[in-house]
Design a protein around this nucleic acid. Sequence first.
DNA 1: CACGATTTTGGAAGCGCTTCCAAAATATCG
DNA 2: CGATATTTTGGAAGCGCTTCCAAAATCGTG
Lengths: 350, 350
Amino acid sequence: MTRKPTIDDVARAAGVARATVSRVLNASPNTSERVREKVLKAVEALNYQVNHQARQLASRTSRVVALVFAADAEAEPNSYYHSAIELGAMRASTEHGYGLVTHTMDPTTDAYRSKILSLVNQSRCDGLILTPPFSDDEEMIGELRECGYPFVLISAGPQARGLSPSVGIDDRQAGVELGSYLVEQGHRRFGYIGGPSEHRSAALRLEGLLEALHTAGLGDDAIDVVEGNFTFKSGIDLAAQLLSGARHPTALVCANDDMAAGALFTAHRIGLNVPVDVSITGFDDTPVSQIVWPPLTTIHQPLRQMGSKATELLIAGVMGENGNHSAGTFEHFVPFELVQRDSTAKRAVE
Amino acid sequence: MTRKPTIDDVARAAGVARATVSRVLNASPNTSERVREKVLKAVEALNYQVNHQARQLASRTSRVVALVFAADAEAEPNSYYHSAIELGAMRASTEHGYGLVTHTMDPTTDAYRSKILSLVNQSRCDGLILTPPFSDDEEMIGELRECGYPFVLISAGPQARGLSPSVGIDDRQAGVELGSYLVEQGHRRFGYIGGPSEHRSAALRLEGLLEALHTAGLGDDAIDVVEGNFTFKSGIDLAAQLLSGARHPTALVCANDDMAAGALFTAHRIGLNVPVDVSITGFDDTPVSQIVWPPLTTIHQPLRQMGSKATELLIAGVMGENGNHSAGTFEHFVPFELVQRDSTAKRAVE
DNA sequence: CACGATTTTGGAAGCGCTTCCAAAATATCG
DNA sequence: CGATATTTTGGAAGCGCTTCCAAAATCGTG
């Protein structure tokens, strides 16, 4: 096995200095067409590949972005949601010549803060993409800002959004649309299975939902709100609680698809017909919403796009040296969409 | 922001040479207790963190392992399956001080081979973990072996398993157990929705299933075999094909949970009651199997454990310098388990 | 065409670490 | 106790690249 060619081999082959090759490879503006071609030809001929380690050491960047997900020690992660974001991030980072490393950490212990900070300090990555609930940890975000470290938030709440580059849908508006859709369908008694209180974006969805109810002349007593943790299991349990009793809600809004699937499960178990007896809605439009029976009416979030958009913002920020944290519009909204399937139906007003 | 301490700072603080610090940090055997302590104290005092880039450049290793998944350009990946493996791999790699990067590539185009080889060549990682169908690409595996590159296979078929370190369940035996269970339940007409032919492990499951049928005195005409692609969608379509007509199978065995969920969907649509009219089984025991209604009888694979085991084997191989490819037992079987849920039931022999 | 302004190129100094080699210190043994 | 084997330490040479600075080439202008 012969030694891999180095930049010096290329320089020799092209008859130029090492520094010139480096410039060509890094698309520096100051190179003549003639030399550029010679170098490129030599690269081709030798099948030269840059050594990332060396490049990183010399340039003091890692060309790696880190994606941080929540995963309780035991809970299965909200996989479809995470996978979709990861896939988008992966595509975008690869496209820009960056690597992507994914980290999961337990948001219920405080250790995650130091873990995140140490990722940064060890120069393991050039920037961070934070997903909920980390994207709402204002204290940590403050620290990151202070050390001038680039990061982008996904689905952050309003406070965090104002301060930092972020991508997400307009959760409040999504809540409004979902609410008015259900009101239009004739529903008057609602249940809401939300997320943990740290998840600001899920709370926004509820605000929007309430707004829609108010607009329709309904008060807060028209809705029963309970707090889940985004797992299938919590959907099962909380739906059992909400659907017991004769005057149960006729529409159950869930803050993600997994909990909606759990609610569906419970409805089946206690013999309620969905959507005849009760309408159920999810959120995210992950594959879960089509796997269950009946398929879920839900809000489509372009998760893949969110992942790639976040990555691109991050990379732009890294390259622009603190361009990330300079003035400008931080908040990137991506479009959402109400997807009607068979888990909801019109309900005659009693 | 003050400059980060380097190994030279530590050396100066401890009053020793740089090389000595390096030795202590890398747990080299030849260091005296006295010096080791001085160095460790200095490290502590300065809050020194090694610079990975520099270490990697100097030592010509990356301390990163790569995990390779299949993802068609458009198809949503088989997320739960992948996520579980990834989680296991992540835990194990972190534990051993390694990074993990995940790569997805499209197995339907041939480009993936050069992509995988280039991962290796660019010294982006010290080793590879291959999942199906890549773990069955004997040609590529041969190339990897030739360049002496460490890798571990997950759920590979028998040919590949013999040659390389691998982890997985005994797929054939799982097929046998599933088959005899269904035979015991009284089923006599079967359908099998398999994977693409490159997936050797899925083919093994079928072999086991057939063996169980033969043992029960049933011939190959007792089973209709069709080839899916592990997606929910293909489960829907192929089940529609198998379940049409009056004398449809009474038991439908699917090579993964997603396709089983699709089969369930079709059964619902065409008005068949599961499990009364037809029993359906999945494979893997991903969360999907509990999300659908009725919950799926399936084979539990310890995916997380498989991910971590593969990672550990790989790291052991990397550290042992070709210990990976030396003699010894390559095949690591992990236990599987038949999980009975509500998608299967006894069937009276007609 | 000469001269300063600008662009392109080459030389050389690191980036922070590992590792080879030889020197120093310590242990072993007749 | 001296000579030799062994272990521990220090010095120095890179790993392959980027980037600063100055030299060389090119351009623009009166």
